[in-house]
Design a protein around this nucleic acid. Structure first.
Length: 422
RNA sequence: GGAGAAAUGGCAGAGUGGUCGAAUGCGGCAGUCUUGAAAACUGUUGAGGGUCACACCUCCGGGGGUUCGAAUCCCUCUUUCUCCGCCA
């Protein structure tokens, strides 16, 4: 959520920035300013009414104390009108404040200057590419065929016990999953992130804190009896750790990492691109989350990019980095780089990590602040990224490391799997 | 699941209808002293709204109510603790 004061002071910049997302926000921004203006006016009226009624109350107290009950009773009558007024002002104020909040929830973050123009993922800008694309043998298979051939992932069984998009990992497939999770966590903690185990269900307040609610309610699985949601990513519980926190400047930066399963309803997805591991309702992911001083957040962002690069280099997977364009950058993000691994057998790129700087957008909703050197409260910057998402990394490994007599395990993973080949 | 107790500032912890945004301690910050540090002493220190700045307003777990006036009384929800039950 953008800050009202920021919108008020940088109106044209905000409109110009949002235009990069191909939206004309002029009307919304004008409305925000108008709502805020009338909210402030009502607040002043309410405050004045309350001030008057407070001072009368004090007077009544003093009169009673000095035994002047008759005068006190006379004053009491004066307050009834004030009470009515303040009630009316209060209601009007709440209406305006709610309307303002609702509107602010609908306005996405202003993209960073470096975000390129564009309408869709086709306009994303490739900024880096590394790793050799292997030459596979003639009988090379896509990962869903390999999974079947080596009996390491069973999609049918998942269909039986839950439904499509809930694969069952078996034997070396299951072990490889566990190896990847441990390897990622080890890499992240070695880079200074503190490991957390987080709840897999979140309440409404947490959903609002990171922006899944109220708008994207349909993307999450909802447990109606307890009004809880299954997490779509560790970002939600991980970032909400810091909801309503006022940190000391010396607490920053904070870096945490955690492994969680992720649950996504993915309503509306279909077709060949969702085959196998490409798109799932339940998948595993190791996430990194940072809370940063505003001055350092872009340095931290570069650090996260370098960190993910390092992992992919070690895994020896061919990958590229995209700077998402205005039309593709997510709602809350100011700047997002996507990492994609090349799936040789499918001849396409698969997104395996997304690293974003949200600047103050999440922190404003979360009320995540720190006390700066002037002793003032200031919003932190939040960032997060996958480090990494499992299924497509697995797909990339299966496809790129396949040989005619089995699938090689990347060298760095062998200590974790305990086997060299599937 | 049953019975009882509780929720106050960064933390601990007083406060049971008026001058309480809240004693005190710890912590933080600034200073004195010191070659420096520690100790000691002095001062200062909650958040949000509002204002050019003041004034002023709101907040004592969340929501609602009683009252001229609520941290304090009532209702309700949530959470925590103790005991009992169940249990990986």
């Amino acid at each position: 959520m953008l800050q009202v004061a920021f919108i008020r002071e940088h109106k044209s910049d905000v409109i110009k920035g949002l235009a990069k997302r191909n939206i004309d926000a002029t009307e919304m921004i004008e409305e925000v300013i108008a709502l805020d203006e009338s909210r402030r006016q009502l607040q002043t009226k309410l405050d004045n009414t309350l001030a008057e009624s407070n001072s009368i109350s004090k007077e009544i107290g003093n009169l009673y104390k000095s035994g002047k009950a008759a005068e006190a009773n006379a004053l009491k009558e004066k307050t009834s009108q004030l009470k009515e007024d303040s009630k009316a002002y209060n209601e009007a104020l709440n209406d305006k404040a709610n309307a303002l909040t609702e509107l602010l929830y609908k306005i996405p973050n202003v993209p960073h200057d470096s975000v390129p123009l564009g309408n869709s993922d086709e306009d994303n800008e490739e900024i880096f590419r590394e790793g050799d694309i292997p030459k596979l043998h003639e009988k090379a298979l896509p990962h869903w065929e390999l999974a079947k051939k080596y009996d390491i992932i069973d999609f049918e069984l998942g269909n039986k016990i839950t439904g499509a998009g809930f694969p069952v990992y078996k034997g070396k497939g299951a072990k490889l999953q566990r190896a990847l999770i441990t390897y990622f966590l080890d890499k992240n903690t070695a880079a200074g992130y503190t490991e957390y185990q987080l709840p897999h269900l979140i309440n409404e307040a947490s959903g609002i804190g990171t922006g899944q609610l109220p708008d994207k309610e349909g993307q999450m699985y909802h447990v109606g009896a307890d009004n809880l949601y299954l997490i779509p990513t560790a970002e939600v519980p991980g970032t909400n750790l810091f909801r309503d926190e006022l940190l000391a400047e010396s607490d920053l930066p904070i870096g945490i990492t955690g492994y969680t399963p992720c649950f996504r309803r993915e309503a509306g997805s279909y077709g060949a691109h969702v085959r196998g591991l490409n798109r799932l309702h339940q998948f595993d992911k190791v996430e990194i989350i940072r809370v940063e001083h505003p001055e350092n957040s872009y340095t931290a962002f570069e650090g996260m990019i370098a960190h993910v690069k390092d992992i992919l280099r070690e895994l020896k997977l061919p990958y590229r980095i995209l700077r998402l364009c205005g039309g593709d950058v997510t709602f809350a993000s100011a700047l997002t780089y996507d990492f994609e691994v090349f799936s040789t057998a499918q001849d396409r790129w698969l997104e395996i990590s997304s690293v974003s700087n949200f600047e103050t957008f999440q922190a404003n909703r979360l009320k995540l602040r720190f006390k700066n050197q002037d002793g003032k409260s200031q919003l932190c910057h939040t960032l997060n990224g996958s480090s990494l998402a499992l299924p497509r990394v697995l797909a990339g490994i299966l496809e790129n490391y396949q040989t005619e007599d089995g699938i090689q395990i990347p060298e760095v993973l062998i200590p974790y799997t305990g086997f060299e080949k599937i």
